[in-house]
Design a protein around this nucleic acid. Structure first.
Lengths: 214, 214
DNA sequence: ACCTGAACACCGTTCAAGT
DNA sequence: ACCTGAACACCGTTCAAGT
């Protein structure tokens, strides 16, 4: 890659390319969209594009970064609000709602991450960051008494984020299905997990041993 | 595609090709692996291969079918066993355990399904089938009294399968992380969801117990 | 009928040549 | 410095020619 003299121009070109590529990838998929298409959409020649991105993979890497920044903004909103459960449900509804829009892109990013170690690392960092954010929000809720005190915030955050990702995946795969059923189930789960229980005596109950086999 | 005279030979060839392709795709990814590589691995020329599969996409379609059949066999095992929770945990541990093996393939299939309507339909059917199977197992558990009677089996099945998929996804993305933490959280969730509660006193539910293998 | 392998249109990427 | 666009090696797919 040649030397770039003007950082402002370089930044602008990179944004133009990412913008154009996101459109192409959304419509046609990462591997189906050709560099020629992206060049046409960005209004420049292959030679020009390759000055700013050394390969097609690097474009998807930049797209993943945009996605992750957006997602982290959303999660940050949760930490601020008072009712963690309602915020989570609203977030899930929002993401599930614009389903056909970014999920194909996310799936492409995920599939790429399976082979590209750099992308995998960033993905992993992003997930951990999300989890920590949510864990902090849950701990804050516990201090305020709006979240059940007896649970481990990190474990709860892990469960909730895993469930959220699974849910979004599911909604993406089954496009036309009614998403409200999924969202209701998610809400029920989060409420069950986080809702404070009346706190009499915390005697550790032994698990039910199953004795009956039919 | 030319006429195929001997169905037995055709079946054998298709199996050989799928076998070879699975190896290539696992190692290199769906779009990274070339048809030449697959041909070499299957020991035949491009022309021969294209007699049995009209395109590369059709090979991944066949692979998805194999995956789905395997997964349904595993789920069927759960319906037979007595302790639904333990069976689910064992299943998750098994899938998460051979993580780097098939997950990249699954991710490729998923990404393809985002563009390929036929693949999407099969994926969706498979998920629904899995869910119904698990719902039936949970309902059976309720009849035996080993599962909390107050929950809706279908909703519970939906939640558990969504969580399982999310978990497998997570384990695939964060390859080297300790999977037992995830599995323990999954177990805690399933126990909390399915465990029968004592009927008379609605006391606080016990927290997560660390280890108990029956 | 079954297979080979050169050929075709197109892909991601490069680089000599323009301004 | 920045860009163009032909060229390169290779891709998925086809098809005339062999057996």
């Amino acid at each position: 890659m040649a030397r770039l003299a003007d950082p402002a121009l370089a930044e602008r070109r990179r944004r133009e390319i990412v913008e154009a590529a996101m459109g192409c990838f959304r419509r046609r998929g990462f591997h189906q969209a050709s560099m020629q298409e992206i060049c046409a959409a960005a209004g420049m020649s292959p030679g020009a594009l390759y000055r700013y991105f050394p390969s097609k993979s690097d474009i998807i890497l930049a797209i993943a970064e945009v996605h992750h920044r957006d997602a982290e903004d959303l999660i940050a909103g949760i930490a601020n609000g008072a009712d963690v459960t309602e915020n989570l449900v609203a977030l899930v509804r929002d993401v599930v709602g614009r389903c056909g829009e970014d999920q194909p892109l996310t799936a492409d990013v995920l599939a790429e991450a399976m082979r590209d170690p750099e992308l995998a690392r960033r993905f992993s960092d992003h997930v951990q960051h999300k989890q920590r954010r949510l864990g902090a929000a849950i701990a804050a809720g516990q201090r305020r008494g709006s979240v059940e005190a007896g649970i481990d915030p990190d474990t709860a955050a892990r469960l909730v984020t895993v469930l959220m990702d699974g849910l979004i995946l599911r909604a993406a795969v089954m496009r036309e299905k009614d998403p409200e059923i999924l969202i209701a189930a998610f809400r029920a789960f989060v409420e069950r997990l986080l809702k404070p229980a009346p706190k009499e005596v915390p005697g550790p109950q032994s698990r039910v041993s199953k004795t009956s086999k039919s």
